[in-house]
């Protein structure tokens, strides 16, 4: 059920990318897809009644290893979020450049590929 809702969120983003004409709307669709994928990866590592993967000073490692959630997807998602920010900045820069060139955000009016 939760996985399916995550997929629905991804689909909404993909719908925005495929059908919208505004370049900023396309960027927004890509952002929503990125959020859905990040959330899905973290959902995969959740354990019932889990604790955060940070060891306290008092608890023993053996007891901790039976409670902790999966730290590996969290580590991968942590880098993915920051990369996503850099990529979003690059896409916004391309949008601004296209706006300066063509005077519009509409991709159907950007017919001329020259220059």
């Amino acid at each position: 059920m939760i996985y399916a809702l995550c997929l629905v969120l991804f689909m909404v983003g993909l719908y925005g990318v495929v059908t919208k004409k505004n370049t900023v709307k396309i960027v927004i669709g890509i952002i929503i897809m990125e959020y859905a994928v990040n959330l899905f990866l973290v959902l995969l590592g959740y354990r019932k009644d889990g604790v955060a993967p940070i060891i306290d000073e008092g608890t023993s490692v053996l007891k901790f290893s039976q409670l902790a959630v999966d730290p590996l997807p969290q580590a991968l998602v942590l880098t993915a979020i920051v990369i996503g920010l850099g990529v979003i900045a690059l896409m916004v820069a391309i949008c601004i450049r296209l706006y300066e060139r063509y005077g519009t955000f509409d991709i159907t009016e950007m017919r001329r590929l020259k220059g």
Partner: peptide, 14 residues
């Protein structure tokens, strides 16, 4: 949602 999923690191970053 990250905070509820016991992932405080990425909650801060997000």
């Amino acid at each position: 949602a990250f905070l509820f999923l016991r992932a405080p690191d990425i909650a801060i970053t997000q």
